[in-house]
Design a protein around this nucleic acid. Structure first.
Lengths: 192, 192
DNA sequence: AAATAAAGTTGAACTGGTTCAACTTTATTT
DNA sequence: AAATAAAGTTGAACCAGTTCAACTTTATTT
């Protein structure tokens, strides 16, 4: 299964596994193909899987009462995505996770993950590091939202993730950065 | 040392320790008293400690180029605080962490924490859970900032943390919620 | 207890970003 | 290839929250 190469390398960045341990890990993986616009997580259903993207792009978002959506995360190749709160606490989701392109993912379910951590402490380390990095990342984003203007946030994102900017619909990017799609259009038009 | 009771209970919420393991943990703790307005973390210095509050209140904030401050976190009794990015990656801090009252803290330094995790996997579990909960918490806050008005965010905070509202300076709360201290004053005045 | 500094309030003028609606362009379906 | 739907653009009117400045109240220092 060549699909597993990138995720093996991904784990190897943080922990060193024996080939038995790696085989154990991989035995829990399920490959899945998701068509563009399909949802893999929906409000009220508990999120069973942690999802790794092999190929494609997704976003997690909140739909508010006024019909607007608010993107909490994008994910492309070699990133994880889910309704994280729902997944780690095994409570009903509040978010949607939708494919922005036809996407191939690898999923591990909650109980397998617990089992891995219970039996092989290295996996506990892996998920600790992952959570800590995610937290640090989100703190930076929060501070950026608190301290910068819309245009500054757009520039920052553009510089940090140029590949995402031209890959996702503009309204999803605007909703991630915290302003309207119309305003993003205006920011862009005054740049050229 | 009666100061250690709350933090022992805190660890016990997530992991069960033998008395030897607990003794090992406590041997790494250092108690410190911090006077109001004193800083325990400053930009450019690498954050050496993870800090637990025994008694008192602190905030972590970013000071921007325009002289404004942006509060990324409050902490009171039984909470942790630090420049988390600086601490976990051992890179220079960008934030200040300041005491909002005379505060008594317990600190563990980075290398001791690593040593604990290397020798006793339960500690790896503890810090994994801590990081996951922090991440889930911050995601909720981020979504609240993306989807709600200033007044709605204030109401939500007030309902969730009534004890903090009347304990910290109003300008720190405004800067946490993402608006000005003047506007918070106006929100409050139109409530009575 | 007086003096001073820091925090909080109020109002008037302002602005960064929103809303709404009409239109154009790009993607998807038939 | 045409038809339709979805995404992106533009402008005008608007508003949620900011800015600035003067003032009042509460803490802190002497």
């Amino acid at each position: 299964m060549d699909d597993f190469e990138p995720i093996k390398k991904h784990f190897a960045k943080y922990i060193e596994l024996t080939s038995e341990e790696e085989a154990r890990l991989i035995s829990f993986f399920k490959v899945k193909n998701v068509r563009k616009k399909q949802m893999i997580v929906q409000p009220d259903f508990t999120c069973k899987y942690r999802t790794y993207i092999v190929k494609g792009a997704m976003r997690a978002y909140l739909a508010d009462d006024k019909g607007q959506t608010h993107t909490i995360a994008f994910a492309i190749e070699d990133w994880w995505i889910s309704d994280f709160n729902s997944y780690i606490n095994q409570v009903p989701a509040t978010l949607f996770v939708e494919a922005l392109e036809d996407t191939r993912v690898i999923q591990i379910d909650y109980h397998s993950e617990q089992l891995l951590m219970d039996t092989i402490p290295k996996f506990e380390r892996f998920f600790r590091i992952a959570a800590q990095q995610s937290f640090a990342f989100l703190q930076k984003r929060m501070l950026s939202n608190l301290s910068k203007t819309a245009e500054e946030r757009y520039d920052e994102f553009f510089q940090k993730y140029p590949s995402i900017v031209n890959r996702v619909p503009q309204y999803t990017l605007a909703s991630y950065l915290g302003f309207t799609t119309e305003f993003l259009s205006k920011i862009r038009s005054r740049k050229k």
